[in-house]
Structures are given as C-alpha cells and as structure tokens.
C-alpha cells in the first residue's frame, strides 16, 4: 500500500475509533460520578428509625399534636394522649407533608392499642416499613388510663 493510502486509512480508522471512544468515555464518566454519589449517600446516611423516632416525639409531647394540657398549669404533659385531640384534623395540624409530594417522606398511622382509635397522615398508604411503640397515658371522657401508642411508619413510596 502506498504512503498516501496508508495515511487516509489511518484518518478514517481514527474517526471511527473516536466516535466509539467518545461514547464509551461518556458512559465511564457518568458511571464514575454515580458511584461516588452513591458512596457519599451511604457515608452520610441516617438510620431511618432515628429520624422517625425524633419526628414522632411531637405526637405525645405538644398540644398542637395530641398531648394532654393540664388545665391548672396550662402546660402540655409529655407522654400523654388527649382523646379529644386524637382526630384526623388535629393530625393535619401536627404533621402534614405536602399533599402532592409528601409520599416521599415519612408518613404515619397512629393507633392506640386498647382504645382502637386510629388516625393517619395525609400521604399514608398502608405501606408500613417499621413500627414504633410508645407507652402513653390516655386522658379521655374523664378517665385516665395507661395504653400503648403504636406508630406505623411508612418511610417513602
């Protein structure tokens, strides 16, 4: 083969090579970025139980949720449930993720073991991931009773 033909073949070969190489290099860089992103996510992950537990603190501790308010001191009593507040309307005051995208975050179903009352947050779809249990004192109808609050947690769908 003469010299000129060799050079022309070389140029054509390199063009094809770089078309393929450009595609492969792009894939490798994207895979590299994805791998590092996944690693960072794992490195900074917070156990979901801790997040849910701290989020659920409010249910039995503040009057904007379901805590009982002492009529004499006007202070909320931590670890209590006031049955008159244990309603879906109060849940929307207490914890209400966005209506459209709230399914991407924690949602809860709250149930009193003995009382059987049950309320849910606005994006709860019965896809429970785990359950938290709290010992509570329930105030309702002039009665005070010990009960367990079962908090079913739906992390995300």
């Amino acid at each position: 083969m003469n010299r000129k033909a060799e050079l022309e073949f070389d140029v054509a070969r390199k063009n094809i090579y770089w078309m393929i190489a450009g595609f492969v290099i792009a894939i490798i860089i994207l895979a590299f970025a994805f791998t590092l992103g996944t690693y960072t996510t794992k490195l900074t992950a917070v156990p979901r139980e801790i997040s849910a537990e701290l989020l659920a603190l409010r249910f039995t501790a503040i009057p904007e949720c379901f805590a009982y308010v002492d009529p004499h001191t006007q202070q909320a009593v931590s670890g209590t449930i006031d049955l008159s507040r244990f309603t879906p309307t109060q849940m929307n005051t207490c914890y209400a993720p966005e209506a459209q995208s709230g399914f991407k975050t924690f949602n809860f179903r709250l149930r009193l073991e003995q009382g059987q009352q049950e309320i849910t947050t606005n994006n709860y779809f019965h896809e429970d991931d785990f359950t938290l249990i709290k010992e509570v004192i329930v105030y309702g109808g002039g009665m005070v009773a010990k009960d367990r609050l079962l908090i079913y947690v739906q992390e995300k769908i």
Partner: peptide, 20 residues
C-alpha cells in the same frame, strides 16, 4: 455539609417535640 444539614433537621424535629 450533608451531615450538618441532617443533624440540624434532627435537632429541629427534637426541639419541636419538646413541650415548653
């Protein structure tokens, strides 16, 4: 940065859940 944001989110939830 990510750890700080996560820590503060957890702290804010905790503070919210404190009576008083």
């Amino acid at each position: 940065k990510i750890n700080l944001a996560e820590d503060l989110r957890l702290m804010l939830h905790t503070v919210t859940g404190v009576p008083g």
